[in-house]
Design a protein around this nucleic acid. Structure first.
Length: 461
RNA sequence: GGCGGCGUAGCCAAGUGGUAAGGCAGGGGACUGCAAAUCCCCGAAUCCCCGGUUCGAAUCCGGGCGCCGCCUCCA
């Protein structure tokens, strides 16, 4: 699997987060099914935007690229995304690109003009097959800049002759630098072969980037380039497109200052990867309710599992509860197998959580039986954790430490007040008990009296 | 202008020919000293509209309306 990574000239935003997390989910899932999967994601570290930024700041392109590669890792690690197996940089694959360009020239698909090399789009008969457009249609669409050097306005640069203040490499056509599209063809084929299974990226890359990659790769090899293309949908801010000009860009690092990464992961992964998503902080807040519910169930599971060990005859009811969860898990996998239908898969998780809660709360089963069923549920949740990267916290931490620095009371004080309240309740002094509960509530702490007499606390929304 | 996508409950979101998943919010009930949590029950009569195909359509076809993306760097 090859995924187009980022051009390293700025911090990553919520849109990058979606792409990163969608392909992280896909990688995690494929890894479970096909342990030999290889995940390659590139860094574009030579490009107009980087050059501009470097010139503006009086730094080298390499310095700019290094800075934002570093930032990229900080962000992806903070998101809990697994590192790809191979992360090639464009600047480290110039020879491969030159070789590929030469091949295209030799085949008559590309031509040289004043040290530039262009791909002659009309020579590649299938041009437009990915994006579903024809050359004629695109020409009719106008808005194409006139470039004297190109034979055809749609031809694109494989190699650009260097201008002053630009990085350059020696090539058969003089000093210059690669065009944007060629790096992905060269690097993906180097690491994955001339034909490989999955190529991914954002929706916006379909045209022209991926269309051009196909032209370059298939033009050079005569073989199919990619079996499956996967393109993730965009994230809008509210209903608007996120863009620099609108000034509504939301950075990953800014979100993660306020929200646990699992909230963002669930928010972005519960929608099918191809659909657009409207991002709002309110929607992210609401996700907390759903995740809390899952964590409460996880908490219950952990309590039950500590009861494990004693042998006990298993009733039909427990067997049935287990079977229900197993079935939901099977359906979860069927949904994932159907074009990564995460929305449906998570629906199955919630169904089984409901079934599990029902069994634990309403059946007359013994603790050991419940523990047995809890094991099945824990197993399912564990697999969800592996694939979605959620539910990885200990429930106790999830409910208590999430925003502990904003808490006005220390954990010790809270425990002390709970203790005081428990005494009051035993004495049937409910007025005092409720005062304490109300006081804690005013401090953002909710109490939960359990049937076993224990009182738990957690943070309010 | 060309190409593509979308329009499902108050909100989010699956389903794409056979009685409309799931989440959040809401109402009622069980439980509780009261709560909280949990569970149960309830809720879509336009699945954007109009035609058509079919025994049967949210799902297919045709025509509208509305929203969005791409066609220029972009996840």
């Amino acid at each position: 699997m090859y995924v187009c990574g980022v051009t390293v000239y700025d911090y990553c935003h919520i849109g990058h987060a979606r792409s990163i997390l969608v392909f992280d989910m896909i990688y995690r899932y494929l890894k479970k099914k096909f342990p030999k999967v290889v995940y390659v994601r590139n860094f574009t570290d030579v490009d107009d935007k980087i050059i501009n930024k470097a010139n503006r700041e009086g730094k080298s392109c390499k310095e700019i690229a290094e800075r934002y590669i570093q930032a990229f890792y900080e962000d992806t690690d903070a998101l809990g995304a697994l590192r790809p197996d191979i992360e090639p940089k464009a600047t480290e694959h110039i020879p491969e690109m030159i070789e590929l360009i030469q091949k295209l020239i030799d085949k008559g698909l590309a031509y040289v003009v004043d040290g530039d090399v262009y791909y002659e789009v009309r020579k590649f008969k299938e041009y437009g097959k990915l994006s579903g457009r024809s050359i004629e249609e695109m020409l009719a669409g106008a808005r194409i800049e006139i470039d004297e050097k190109k034979k055809d306005p749609l031809d694109f640069a494989l190699w650009k002759a260097s201008k002053p203040n630009e990085p350059w490499w020696e090539s058969p056509w003089g000093r210059g630098r690669p065009g944007w599209h060629i790096e992905c063809s060269a690097m993906s084929m180097k690491y994955l072969g001339e034909t490989f299974d999955i190529h991914g990226g954002g929706m916006d890359l379909i045209f022209p980037h991926h269309e051009n990659e196909i032209a370059q790769s298939e033009g050079a090899t005569g073989k199919p380039f990619v079996i499956y293309w996967i393109h993730n949908g965009f994230v809008n801010i509210g209903k608007e497109k996120m863009s620099k000009s609108l000034g509504n860009i939301i950075l990953i690092r800014d979100i993660l200052k306020r929200y646990d990464r699992e909230l963002l992961r669930l928010f972005l992964l519960k929608t099918h990867y191809r659909s657009p998503i409207d991002f709002t902080f309110e929607a992210l807040d609401k996700e907390k309710e759903s995740l809390d519910r899952l964590y409460r169930t996880k908490e219950k599971i952990e309590e039950l599992l500590s009861e494990k060990g004693k042998e006990h005859p298993v009733t039909e009811e427990a067997e049935k509860a287990k079977a229900e969860i197993e079935k939901a898990k099977e359906e979860f996998y069927q949904a994932m197998d159907d074009d990564f239908n995460t929305a449906m898969a998570l629906g199955k998780l919630f169904e089984s959580v409901r079934d599990f809660n029902r069994f634990v709360d309403k059946s007359g089963a013994s603790l050991t039986e419940k523990a047995l069923v809890a094991e099945t549920m824990a197993d399912f949740m564990g697999e969800v954790e592996e694939i979605f990267g959620i539910l990885s916290h200990k429930p106790s931490e999830w409910f208590k430490e999430a925003k502990s620095e904003e808490l006005e009371l220390s954990a010790e004080e809270i425990e002390r007040l709970i203790e005081e309240r428990s005494r009051a309740r035993k004495e049937k002094n409910y007025k005092k008990a409720d005062e304490i509960r109300d006081f804690l509530k005013s401090k953002g702490i909710l109490l939960e009296d359990r049937p076993d007499g224990k009182t738990l606390w957690r943070l309010a929304k």
